[in-house]
Design a protein around this nucleic acid. Structure first.
Lengths: 184, 184
DNA sequence: GTCTATATGCCGATAGAC
DNA sequence: GTCTATCGGCATATAGAC
């Protein structure tokens, strides 16, 4: 693999685990097997590299969601499949995690890909929900934008509760509770 | 105010905004108006001070929740009041934020107060939900532990979505969507 | 493109005076 | 209790050779 590619992927992993403040250029270089000079030749610094890594993670997250939300089946089935897919729960969400970082939230260049990813996700979920309303799966009183936000929030909050408990249980409970409400 | 008290409160604020990795003893001392020697006289180091600060935040968060969940009104009213209370949404949750910090999650001493706070919250919500089931407010099919986890997750995830968007809107949508599901 | 050398400053803490 | 001095190490680059 090329050096640039290794740098981006290593940064993705480190940002996921340690966030922006907790990720040093030195650690990135070590993980990528690249030297100091090499990293600074390809990127102007930590911020630019982080931007590339976050954008990449956003693209990957969207693709993974679309695979399930755009697949076969009823709207309810696709949402349930998305909610129930295998996840490395205790590692948390690679994108959501970054919202804890004040440096990411404060920098428009770094926050943009985070924002775009969640805005897309909520919009895509809302589309599927609207579909489900049309064919009578969901009550006509349901507001797609609201329910979409609720679904995305349960996932993000589920990660938080799971990491607090050092157990996937609260995550699973939260998802099951949501499905009970939706399917009732 | 005493020095110890100022140190703890300053640490609470800094942990809220910048997390454990992003909070340095030097910054704590500056915020508390205390010198190096003073801080290390009262606390063995950053970890011990952080533990005291997290415990304090946990106590405060529980008290604030209990005030609404244990107040007057039906179960549904109390939950809606808790969900709808004023929050500094874009600052996120002081406790939930810490789950993004690998050093907090990995250290039993630091994770314990985080875990206890959310475990208490889910338990308390489940009690109120069970009450609501008994007097017919909620369907008999509702599982209190699941719904409690869902409610806590929507709040925590709502903060994440709001900070990503740099807007409280997704938080409000997520809460409204949850209330629509519960009240339906 | 990648390497090594160098730089300023913060990190987290310890030591010992006052 | 609080202060100042000191410490080894890392953070985040920049400079210039190869």
């Amino acid at each position: 693999m090329e050096t640039v590619e290794r740098l981006i992927r290593s940064t993705q992993e480190l940002l996921w685990e340690r966030g922006y403040v907790g990720t040093s250029p030195k650690a990135i270089q070590a993980a990528a097997g690249a030297g100091q000079g090499s990293m600074y030749h390809h990127f102007s610094g930590k911020a630019e590299l982080a931007k590339a890594a976050i954008e990449r993670s956003g693209v990957e997250m969207r693709a993974a969601a679309e695979e399930l939300l755009g697949g076969a089946g009823t709207a309810g089935e696709r949402i349930a499949r998305y909610l129930g897919r295998e996840r490395d729960v205790l590692r948390g969400c690679r994108i959501g995690r970054l919202t804890a970082d004040p440096e990411v939230v404060a920098d428009p260049e770094l926050r943009a890909p985070v924002d775009e990813t969640f805005t897309w996700l909520r919009g895509r979920l809302a589309e599927v929900i609207a579909e489900g309303k049309q064919n009578g799966e969901f009550a006509a009183t349901i507001d797609p934008d609201r329910l979409a936000a609720t679904i995305a929030a349960v996932l993000q909050g589920g990660y938080v509760l799971a990491r607090a408990a050092d157990s996937t249980e609260p995550f699973d409970l939260a998802i099951q509770g949501l499905l009970e409400l939706i399917e009732a």
